[in-house]
Computed example of a mutant assay.
Amino acid sequence: MHFSPEQALRLARETLDIESAAILGLKNRLTPQGFARAVELMLACQGRVVVMGMGKSGHVGRKVAATLASTGTPALFVHPAEASHGDLGMIQPQDVALAISNSGESAELNAILPLIKRMGAPLVAMTGQPHSTLAGCADVLLDSGVAREACPLNLAPTASTTAQLALGDALAVALLDARGFKAEDFARSHPGGALGRKLLTRVADVMRQGSEVPCVPPEASFSELMREISAKGLGAAAIADTQGRAIGIFTDGDLRRLIETGRDLRPLTARDVMHASPRHIAPAALAAEAAKLMERHRISVLLVQGDEGRLQGVVSSHDLMRAKVI
């Protein structure tokens, strides 16, 4: 075995050139009768898009099904060989079948095509051979053919699978646009992901409330105010009136600045030292909005206020980090 860095780089660049050309070559083969009709069938589908493929095309099919499902088009992958042994029951007449095969002659896939046709489910074929058995059975043909594979032997599926992936993504994008699919819809499909957390997590989900909220009345002494801040561990305390409305806030930063003035702090009350009209946010607001507000005003704590300005909780930058919103 002899490794040549120059040869490796040359082949890598050639691979990228070949696969780029394969994807670009698909553009001129997108037609109203083919691509647009496939989108139309999937858009009108009352069931699911059932994606099938063998070997490398099967791996592509799993990714295509996952992308469709996460962007608003119900989809699943069915292995053609397993379909012949019972899984064909997963396909229903109201579904749309998307069969992927570069050669269009996959024995396991072609064996179940007559059953799909008899069932009445529309069949969309994604194949590199427009005159293949698969293409001949299809209601709609998506030509994914490539001039050659990136493999130096022109054998291993490389450019062909890249083209299939790109065409699958093109279907998903066209479908999500036609459905009016929004970022919020994507987030609901990905509640555990970063986008899901940013678009679904509300302030009410992460705020501290009840006894966890550092709060004193305006008449509280300075020592009472400091004990409350220390006890709750947020580096701040809200000042609320008898109606529960937040009228001010006092933070560790305010304390440092107050000490620097040299004033005698002992006779002071919470009202004397508080910042009036503190920054606040509603409990129904997105937690991501709380993060933006903190960043904009360079603060680490926000009061959460409900109707008529009543204090309902408090949220800190640490709470947002724990929730992985920031």
Rank of each mutant, 00 (worst) to 15 (best):
A172T: 08
V216K: 07
P214E: 09
R188Q: 15
M226G: 13
D185R: 01
T201E: 10
T158S: 14
R197G: 11
A204W: 03
E212D: 15
I229T: 14
Q209C: 11
E149P: 01
S189F: 15
K182A: 14
S230Q: 13
V216R: 08
S223H: 09
T162N: 01
V203T: 13
L167P: 03
R179Q: 14
A159C: 05
R202M: 08
F186Q: 07
S160G: 06
P152N: 02
L167H: 04
R227W: 13
A163L: 05
E212T: 06
A187M: 08
S230W: 06
D177E: 15
A172N: 00
E184D: 15
A159E: 04
A174F: 04
A204D: 12
P191C: 11
A220C: 07
L155I: 08
Q164A: 15
P157L: 08
R188E: 15
A220W: 02
A187H: 09
S221M: 03
L165F: 09
G193T: 09
T201P: 01
F222C: 12
E224L: 02
T161E: 03
L176H: 03
L195W: 03
D169V: 02
M207T: 07
G193L: 03
A174C: 08
P214G: 08
R208T: 10
D185A: 07
F222R: 08
L176S: 13
T201I: 13
H190C: 05
P214Q: 10
D205V: 09
P217Q: 11
F186R: 05
A166C: 09
V216C: 05
R179P: 11
S230E: 14
G168Q: 01
A159I: 00
V203K: 10
E228G: 10
R179T: 08
A174R: 01
L167A: 03
L167R: 02
L200V: 09
A166E: 03
R179K: 15
G210H: 02
A170L: 07
T201Q: 12
I229W: 01
T161L: 02
A187F: 08
C215M: 14
S160E: 07
E184R: 15
D169R: 00
N154P: 04
A178F: 05
P157Y: 00
I229H: 06
L167W: 03
A170Y: 07
D205Q: 12
K232F: 11
R208S: 14
E228Q: 14
A187D: 11
P152T: 00
P214A: 15
G180N: 06
D205G: 05
T161D: 07
E184S: 15
L165A: 12
A150D: 02
E149G: 06
A156W: 00
A194R: 04
L167M: 14
A150V: 00
S160T: 03
V206F: 06
S211D: 15
C151G: 01
A172P: 01
D169Q: 01
L195F: 04
A166S: 06
P214C: 11
S230V: 12
E149M: 03
M226D: 13
A231T: 09
A204V: 13
L167T: 04
F222I: 05
G196L: 11
F181K: 02
E224K: 00
Q164C: 13
D169F: 04
Q164W: 00
S211L: 14
L200W: 10
S160N: 04
R208W: 11
R179H: 14
D185L: 01
R202A: 13
S221W: 06
S189L: 14
